[in-house]
Design a protein around this nucleic acid. Structure first.
Lengths: 130, 130
DNA sequence: TTGCGTGCAAAGGTTTTGCATGGCA
DNA sequence: TGCCATGCAAAACCTTTGCACGCAA
């Protein structure tokens, strides 16, 4: 809107972090503790929510902590899968899952928001422990 | 599996709360502050995560707070979908979703645990607000 | 110069953990 | 009687807020 916004060094630094690893999900902690960045805690949170609002990055909540990721392509449709055992987060971008979304929408009248959805389960390495 | 577990008064009290309002979502705070229950804070959290693990209740993370709700359906295989807008929980049991599980397992090496997975999105009635 | 942005510290809220006691089997 | 469960308090986290100073325009 008509918000006055300054262009600061900190904004560049943080945005470049996301751009440098556009497929990586960052936790706020990870960013705050990054020595090569060294931004104030409050600043990180303020910039993150600002970026989210501006559509530069995406936020999704996973349990207690939030994850942030560069938004490479506006409506990029992919799912997240989190391993219950090791905690690793996986991305899956596959045409079949789009079909699933459509199927659920048409046959079950539910419109999945894959940005807010995380599939839980076990990854290849952790499966044996089940 | 070979976990020793005692049957306690507190477990009954908490489980009965969920059973008494099987469609209601409770926040941890709500439960802790319920005078008629009066369970210790730590106990509530411990029992909640225990119930979740046992499949007795389901946990949803919506924004900051976690929500807990009775899980009517024992261990059978189907997915849950929760409307972000109205909070209603839907069940979906459809052969296609089994195919999806298999697909993810075979082609993406991830083994979805549908008991712990909830799809978030908008139901038919709430979709217009999106 | 103006006033937004930053960083520090403190506050606020949720969940976890340590430890002594209580209660089930 | 063993040993898990409970409850209290403290700790551990994540995130927000207040405030003085710094810095962009």
């Amino acid at each position: 809107m008509n918000e006055k916004s300054y262009h600061t060094k900190q904004k560049d630094i943080l945005l470049n972090l996301f751009k440098s690893q556009p497929h990586k999900c960052f936790t706020s902690r990870e960013i705050i503790e990054d020595e090569s960045i060294s931004l104030g805690e409050a600043t990180v949170y303020r910039l993150l929510s600002q970026f989210v609002k501006d559509g530069l990055i995406q936020k999704f909540t996973q349990g207690k902590a939030s994850l942030y990721q560069f938004n490479h392509c506006g409506g990029d449709s992919h799912f997240h899968m989190k391993c219950i055992e090791c905690g690793e987060l996986y991305h899956i971008d596959c045409p079949m899952l789009r079909d699933v979304e459509n199927h659920i929408a048409h046959d079950h009248n539910f419109f999945v928001d894959n940005l807010n959805t995380t599939l839980y389960g076990y990854c290849k390495g952790c499966r044996k422990d089940t």
